[in-house]
Each structure stands twice: as C-alpha cells, then as structure tokens.
Design a protein around this nucleic acid. Structure first.
Lengths: 339, 339
DNA sequence: TGACACGATCGAAACGTTTAGATTAGCGTT
DNA sequence: AACGCTAATCTAAACGTTTCGATCGTGTCA
C-alpha cells in the first residue's frame, strides 16, 4: 500500500479510504490510485488487516471424520454458506480423538478464527474450558455438551432411533442387536435411549448381550456383528447407530455366510447417497444434512454479525426413517404379508 | 505479551526470547515470565506473528467436490499430513466452477497461505496467472495444467482406463458406452484417450453416439445413461469416468427396468469404500488415495521447508482395476464360462 | 471582507509480534 | 586497574494495515 501511495502521490490513508470506501476521495485521486494499484498489482494484505481490525473473517470447523458421509455433506453445506458470506473455513478432523481435538481447537484459536463450529469428541470438560477462555462464538454441531452453554444444532436422536426400532418390532423382530459408538457423546447416549425406550414400550426385554460398543469405525462394526452372529441365539435384526460401522456389519454378514435381508435384517443411522441403488437397499435414519449445515452456519453468522448477547439457542431437528428393503417381516407379520 | 512483560518486570523482547527459545534467558527471569504467562493466561497472537514473520503456517486446499469419495479421502490424508507438520488447512470447494475457483484461490492468497494444493477446474489459463503472481509454492492434484510448471501428482489415467476397457472387451463386449466429464481437464482427456486406445488396439470401431459428456454430477450420469439405453442399439456395457456419475448410471438402469450385470455391465472410475458389500459389486478403477494425498503433502512440505528452486516434480501413480461382479461375460466368452 | 463550515487529504499512532543492535553486568587476564 | 569477552537483557524499528484527529483550501453567508 505504501508503494501504491507513493506511485499515486497520495498518503496511505487516502489509499485505504478509497479501497474501503470509508471516506470520499476526489475523482482525480481515485483515478491515480486505481491506476497505481493496477500498475503495481497491489493486493491488500489480509493478515495486516486482521491484526488491526481484530477479525480474520475465518472460522474453524472440526469434525470427527471427514470420510463419514454425514459429516462430508454437512461440511460441504457449511463451507458453501460461509463462502457466500465471504468467510474462509479452516477444517480439522479430530479422528474421534480427544487430544487431537484439543490441539486443533487451540490451533484454530491461536489463528484468531472469528468463530467455531465443533462436532465434538469425547468428554466435554476440556472443550468447555477452551470455549470459556476464547471469547469467540461457538456452535456445537451434532453433539451437545453438558455444561457448555452455547448455540447448538442437533438431531432428535432418541426419537429417530425409537422410530426405527419400533419399525423393526412392528415387522415382528424380537431380538434386535444394537451397535453403537462410545456413549460419552450425546447422540450415542440419546440413540441408545431411543433403543431402550422402543423395547420398553413394546414390552420386550433388553438383552445386554445384544448391545455392542465400538469406536465408530468400520472394523468396530465388523467385530461387533461377528460376535453377535456367532452366538447361539443370534438376533434377527441389527441396528447400527453409526454410518461407517454398518459397512462393517454388512461385511461380517457376508463373511459369516449369511445374507441380508433373508437371514438378518439391517437398519442404520445416517443415509447414503447411493442407498436406493444397490442391494440390499438399506433402511436408514436420514438426517436433514442440508438443514443442519445451514442452521449451524446461520447461528454462527448471526453471532458474527454482532448478536453476541442473545441467550444460547438450541435447534433440534427431526430425522426421517427411510424404509427400503434391508429389513424383512418375521413370524406372524411375514405370513400376513405373504398371504 | 506486553502485559506479561510488565507483570514479570522484563521487556517484551525477553518474553519473546523465552517463548521462542531464540536466546538464553536466566532461570530467574524464566520463572517470573512463565508465572506471568500462567497468571494472565497469555496466548501468542498468531496473526501478529504471521505479519512479522511473513508466514502463516497455513495452506490452502481446493477441490471440486468434497462429497466425491475420492476427494474426501484425499482431503482427509492431506489434512492429517499437515496437521502432523503443524500447519492448518483451509479447505475450499469450487463445485467445478471456474469463477468460484478463482475467487477462492484469491481469497486464500489474500490470507497469505504459505502454499496451495489445487485440484483445479476448467481452463488453466487464469490459474496460471494466479500461480505466477503469487509467489507461494503450488502443487497440482489429480489434474495437471498445460503451461503451469509446478509440482503435481496425478494418476496414469490413460493406462487405467485402457485396462478397464480392455477388460470389458476381453469379456466379449463390443459396444461400450463411455460417460465422461467435460474434457477440458487433464484426467478426463487422458481417460478418454485410454478408452479410444483400448478400442483401437482391439480393432473395434469408435461409435461417437456411445460417448456422452456430463458435468460430473449424479444427474449428468443419469441423463447420459438414459439417452444411451433408450437408443435402439444400446451398449452392453457402460464405463463411467467419474464416481458420482455412476450413481446416476445405476439409477437410470433401475428406472428403465434393466438390471446390472444381467442386462448391462457397469464399471467406473474411483473406488467406493462399500463397493464389495452391496450388489452389484462394482468393478472400479481404484486410485491410491493414500499415496496421492501423502505425495501431494510431501511435495508441498518440501517446498515449504525451503527447497524452492528445485525443478517442478511430476509424480504419476498407477490405478488398479478392482474386478468385482458388475460386468458379465458376453457371447463366446459367456458360453466358455458357463460350459 | 472576515468568519465559518465543509469536504478532501494527510500525519501519525496503534494492532502484537520479532529481531538487530545497543547496553549492561560479571568475570578472567594481563 | 584497565581491558576485553561473554552472556543476559533491553530499546526501538519494522511488518502492512486502519483510523483518529489535524490541516488545508474553497465556497457560503452574514
């Protein structure tokens, strides 16, 4: 900018005024300045600007896995929203690891992001500390956090799983396996509650050996399914509370020589873009990814626009059961259907 | 830092020296300073640091679509690599749009990223201009760019498609539909060349009506497939040169009442994590996503480490044909197989 | 004609670091 | 005792912006 000012024979203040439109500058000088900018190929240094202005027009976004289609979609929507608003997005994948998450959030805060969208991992205590310290607005995504009073957008997980399990029960299933991630994060906790509630409402016992915990990865779903299917009294249906894990479930079913839905019914959380093209077409709980991403972005953009003091807002969206052909009717139901 | 210096009754220079270890500071002062840092909860301002140092320890990464599993995987690998190296990653999705891409690259350069990894879109001319202007190292990913002399990591696309088409020909297919993205980017161009070469080597004619262009999206694959299958002389196999478009192909096959592989064989570029679980199990050309991501990251990290003047390096990796059950033998082949 | 307001422009401080070079203190040598 | 050397510390400039308040013409009005 100094060079531009010199070339145009004006002060840097005038150049700044013209660029930002913060003061009127005469047509004559305007032209000289614009010419100089073109000649020199001047680009405003956003770092210096950030330092002075105290704002970077950059937000941080952390998700556990970017390869999980649910997060992929949400990230994509969020990215578009901030792009439109002239913000850059720094993306971090925490890989479901608490320490990684802490490091990355600190990294983001060091870089003075103006705001944060966090699909958190593990225990919320450290996150709470970080959030309290940093005085940037934070929006929790997908996973809320006890004791952290901030904006959030989540799904009604309990209801969604309740509906799915009830659907399986209505089909005649009595022994329904349930594969979940570690329950220290809210969605896993709530989904489990939905499972238990559905069985309870239907008057069915809860068999603890049918509930398996994994760490969100395909291999975890594989192992859990293997264990369940190897037992003498195997379930007739399996619900996987997480998207990558259901791939593991399907592989285990294949490897053990069974098939879906003939031998075992499968349903899972999170929809796939290709669910209705390949066989079996998985019955899933679809999350409104577009809405989730947009709402999260809007909540944060609203704070960034200056609305700092409004009380925390928590948006709860509804999932939708996408019934396809991966679950078959059993017993009486099966007869009435085939009759 | 000023506050810390005051609280510890030292100068800011000493605080800086201690934090960065750039000079020895006595145990006594060290302790006072560390205490003050803790008391005040001081965090170094990375923006001010960047301004002074001329480096942000942040890189920019642009991809056409983050929802395409190929890019998802590569992004994930790259992110991990830079995370380990202490860099942040700014991710942008250009949505296959040239203007968006230009805007985003400019946005990244404005923010003084230290380097850039670009899976480019459209014509390379503007990109070339931008890259020449900005004096940051650039690594091209997946798509090279005529006239832009910079590091790159790409697949041997021609060979990969040649192998896939030759496989179809060996199965007895003679009319093989080919669905591709716009051929102004190198992979699409090279893949097309592989298609033509395979037909040529086999002595088969090239039927231009069997070659369809789309814009990389599912809907484009759908439309292209619909057109091909509605013709009186439809192909017996279809190869889709892009991952999302093959979903459209499968949907079209379903909607038109045909099935794969019985009525029509399908193969495509890019592997899916779930390809061998659902039916039909797609035969695909798998890219070594891990290697691609790592190599791209390494090339850039090497430049960032100071190796600026080395000549541009271009890495060409090999694809791998993953043969599954979505393509069936035809004619004589089919008889010999069933015999 | 003098006072005044107003619009255009500029000078300089500030944002929070890093760092070159100056200063100081302590210590061994001659 | 004077000197030089080293280690520890400090002062102040610099990075490239924004912005407050000052300055300077110029035209308007009493």
């Amino acid at each position: 900018m100094l060079h531009v000012a010199e070339a145009a024979r004006v002060s840097v203040a005038t150049v700044s005024a013209l660029i930002n439109g913060t003061a009127t500058v005469s047509p004559e000088l305007s032209q000289r300045i614009e010419q100089a900018i073109r000649d020199i190929g001047y680009k405003r240094n956003a770092i210096a600007r950030s330092l002075k202005m105290g704002t970077t027009r950059t937000i941080g976004l952390t998700v556990p896995h970017i390869t999980n289609p649910f997060f992929t979609d949400v990230v994509s929507v969020i990215q578009q929203a901030f792009d439109r608003a002239g913000y850059a997005v720094m993306l971090c994948c925490t890989d479901e690891d608490l320490n990684t998450q802490d490091d990355q959030i600190r990294l983001l805060l060091d870089r003075m992001v103006d705001g944060l969208i966090v699909a958190r991992v593990g225990d919320g205590a450290i996150l709470k500390g970080i959030v309290d310290d940093a005085n940037v607005p934070v929006v929790l995504l997908d996973r809320i956090c006890e004791g952290v009073d901030t904006d959030a957008v989540v799904l009604d997980n309990q209801r969604a799983v309740f509906d799915a399990i009830t659907y399986l029960i209505d089909l005649g299933h009595r022994r329904i396996g349930y594969i979940t991630g570690t329950s220290d994060i809210s969605p896993m906790h709530d989904r489990m509650a939905g499972y238990r509630e559905a069985l309870h409402v239907a008057g069915l016992p809860i068999a603890e050996e049918l509930i398996r915990f994994g760490n969100f990865h395909e291999i975890d779903g594989y192992n859990a399914t293997m264990q369940m299917l190897s037992s003498h009294d195997r379930p007739s249906a399996i619900f996987s509370a997480n998207n990558p894990m259901v791939i593991g479930t399907m592989k285990a079913i294949r490897d053990i020589g069974l098939s879906c839905p003939e031998d075992i019914s499968v349903a899972c959380f999170d929809d796939f873009p290709w669910s209705d093209v390949f066989q079996p077409q998985l019955t899933t709980v679809a999350q409104p990814v577009q809405a989730i991403g947009e709402q999260a972005a809007n909540l944060l953009l609203d704070r960034l626009a200056g609305n700092r003091d409004a009380p925390p807002r928590k948006l709860v969206l509804k999932g939708r059961l996408m019934i396809r052909n991966s679950c078959r009717p059993l017993g009486a139901m099966a007869q009435s259907v085939s009759a």
